[in-house]
Design a protein around this nucleic acid. Structure first.
Lengths: 329, 329
DNA sequence: TTGTAGGCGTTATCAC
DNA sequence: GTGATAACGCCTACAA
């Protein structure tokens, strides 16, 4: 069903049908009525691709995520999709995984689809390969990165200050009298690296040992569980552990529970993300809120500003804040 | 950058460029080389919309989800997106929310984008309004529903047998000597309704009181928490609670913990979804696995079969199975 | 082996 | 008010 089919049956030209569809003036009321009836009768819907071809605007936004199942990223994708849908944009969402090739590949797909903008969610996009792919394939559209930044003229970054966030976690724990602190990381993304460095900086500035960083190996409950056992084995005097994400902290809490160690009395625990995982834990997990939601809002705003050709700040850093629950005194 | 730009610089016609791009035979090797060099030089990428227009195939699949943040649905979206991407399909993902209008609206958007197929994830799409929208806007493309079914010639349903699943949970608990059972629901979707009815059927067939169904009011931890308090207040003799989803079960576990009731000794608890939430709980949650992953695989298979014009089963029911952890004896 | 012409569904610019 | 006509970027006969 095309406008020509409608036009033929209405006994008018395609242009008139187009005018009616787009609510343009200059159509005799009765013609308009007649066409509208047929449009409704056949549930006619214009072809977005054909429209995009002539209007030179796809009305498509590309969203790239390493893995949409990562709860920390899903929220952003949801918020942005919802808001953009209200503006008649369609979002194509691609899970890129974590290797350079498939990220670059995904960016090239966005170009094929002639997206009007792209949103890259997750710090793992802060990579040279991504920068190159953007220069090759998305030079002319705004690219908004959440929790990452690349210094290119069309790239905007919304960052969470996880470095100072974790630093403040260290301070928070020491103020509660905990000084034998350990940090458990889950990966080596730029974001996680920031957290580690925040820990080390916080410890060093307080004259404490900044070297006690452990690796969960994977972002899983059991990863956190095993790493915690190792922490306990190597340093039984530990009285506080900071985990790079809530999920591995949940594994850590379980390890402590199994070892008969009470939280927060004997050991305090802090996670990062302020996710629902922390609410499920017993005791409920104190967590560094890295402002997922605020980041999404900010990213959306920047995106819309770019789309409307307004200027927007290239880089924006959101402070993170500790949400105190039951796993710390 | 279009094929004409490339053609001009190469001193050939656009069709030759097109041939090279699509790896068609009948191009002099040196011409091909020359064109390929320019293609590379300018990082040329063909416009998918223009291609789709002539080939009459958008290579776009639409995925509709009530809310992508719902962990139970995210997994399916991830799996399907990944697999389809490997087949050069692009997925547009729309969060529809739970009201009829926006669902129908979303379906109409899929038609505008001329999707080649649609995947509807979640039982809430099993509704008359959706059926009508499909008949109006997606009559000619395969529609695969996960956890739902609508009887239309182009619609395929992958269902999880939650009715018998919950029924078996009842049986499981009674075999462990628990007979004062309650069921806490989180919503009124067709899926949740199935679970409730499975509970009632299971209880009735064992000569037990099938009426003890409670409503958490919302799919949240606190919803489950409050409902559980109500269960305890109204029926202190309760020795087993089944929750319609893990998330509210997590709230339930917390309520029991706060009340000093030991799980599973005094009260056994079962959730549904076999999600990561259950792994975080202490004690770890026994849960009815409704085969999210298997459903995704099956949905993908059906989808591909349809895309390849093979015939596929219109309806498919996957048995669910109890995964026993620590919250039951 | 190559180029020309026509068309995919739509919108915009003209004449009429 | 209305209707040809020419784009938009690409592909595919068909002709050369």
């Amino acid at each position: 069903m095309t406008i020509y089919d409608i036009a033929r049956e209405a006994g008018v030209s395609a242009s008139s049908v187009s005018r009616v569809i787009n609510n343009k003036a200059g159509v005799k009321p009765e013609t308009r009525k007649k066409v509208q009836r047929l449009l409704k009768k056949y549930h006619y819907t214009p072809d977005a691709a054909a429209r995009g071809l002539v209007s030179q605007s796809s009305k498509i936004i590309g969203i790239l995520i390493a893995d949409i199942r990562n709860i920390h990223h899903t929220d952003g994708a949801y918020y942005i999709e919802r808001r953009l849908a209200a503006l008649n944009y369609c979002c194509i969402i691609l899970n890129t995984g974590d290797d350079d090739d498939s990220r670059a590949q995904a960016i090239s797909i966005l170009e094929q689809r002639r997206v009007e903008a792209a949103v890259l969610i997750g710090s793992s996009f802060q990579a040279e390969s991504v920068s190159q792919a953007i220069q090759r394939h998305l030079k002319d559209v705004p690219v908004v990165m959440i929790n990452a930044f690349i210094d290119l003229p069309n790239v905007y970054g919304i960052l969470s200050d996880e470095f100072h966030g974790v630093e403040s976690c260290v301070k928070f724990l020491t103020e509660k009298g905990r000084t034998h602190l350990a940090f458990v990381r889950d990966c080596y993304t730029p974001s996680c690296q920031q957290k580690v460095e925040g820990f080390q900086s916080g410890m060093a500035s307080l004259g404490l040992n900044p070297q006690r960083v452990y690796d969960a190996g994977e972002t899983t409950i059991s990863g956190g569980y095993q790493a915690t056992l190792q922490v306990l084995k190597e340093h039984p005097e530990t009285d506080g552990i900071i985990f790079s994400v809530d999920l591995i902290a949940a594994g850590g809490l379980r390890a402590l529970y199994d070892q008969g160690i009470s939280v927060p009395e004997q050991i305090s625990v802090i996670g990062v993300d302020n996710s629902i995982y922390g609410e499920i834990c017993i005791p409920k997990l104190t967590s560094l809120d890295n402002k997922t939601f605020d980041s999404s809002i900010a990213a959306y705003r920047v995106l819309v500003d770019c789309l409307e050709n307004k200027t927007a700040a290239r880089q924006m850093i959101l402070p993170s804040a500790i949400v105190v629950r039951e796993s710390t005194p």
